[in-house]
Design a protein around this nucleic acid. Structure first.
Lengths: 114, 114
DNA sequence: CGTATATTCAACCTGTCGGTTGATTACCCA
DNA sequence: TGGGTAATCAACCGACAGGTTGAATATACG
């Protein structure tokens, strides 16, 4: 499996359970059992999800006695934010155009349009 | 297949070919043939990729004679940017902490470590 | 030492993904 | 009307994703 890192991150985030796990971890570290509790799937399934998140670099896991503490690593999310930002211009443009239009409307409401 | 919209967008972006197609469309509309040209896969495969992107709301397609003009719709990317932004605090915090650490290191470089 | 707890490993099943090839539809043009 | 071009539909295939259950491993604790 030689998937590129960006694809790995997107793929990891393309699952609601995994996104929920991340949301939970955003509030603080947790063990596998703690993370699995809210979900209607087996512990093993959650363990697999965590492996996916770890491979994508979104979490790190450290051993602590018989527990494995999971911690969110936001670095890939930062990369992702930068990737999406490449396209920001596109929707900004659209909004700018709307803004311009509304502004122009307001300014020239009592005049005639060009 | 009742996948939620966010998952659909992430899944659509989890493929390098589809991301390349989006990058191409960011420079302007294109037909299926034009989009397929750079890739070493069949036209049908690209057509499928476009269907995925369309289902995710990332592109729209309009008929024009025998051509089908594809246009990027940045709206889902904006949604995605907002999603990622939920986590911005986390990496900002971390970098602040790193900054603090480095600053502290610099200041106490001539003293002994704790 | 033996047992309980936390977690992963292994094997398996089903459905979806990305790709192929071949046939089909839709449109233009001479 | 018939041929050429653009694109999709349909059927198929191998690989992988997400789920299960059952066994194995690691660590603490009495």
């Amino acid at each position: 499996m030689t998937t590129d890192p960006v694809s790995a991150v997107f793929a990891a985030l393309a699952d609601p359970t995994r996104r929920a796990i991340l949301a939970r971890l955003a509030t603080g570290d947790a063990t596998v059992n703690e993370l699995a509790a809210p979900f209607p799937v087996s512990l093993q399934a959650v363990s697999k999800h965590l492996a996916v998140l770890e491979r994508a670099g979104l979490i790190t896991r450290t051993r602590e006695a018989q527990w494995r503490r999971c911690r969110l690593d936001p670095a890939p999310l930062r990369t992702l934010a930068e990737w999406v930002d490449q396209y920001r211009r596109l929707w900004d443009e659209r909004y700018d155009t709307l803004d311009d239009y509304l502004r122009a409307q307001k300014e020239t409401r009592h005049e005639q349009a060009p």
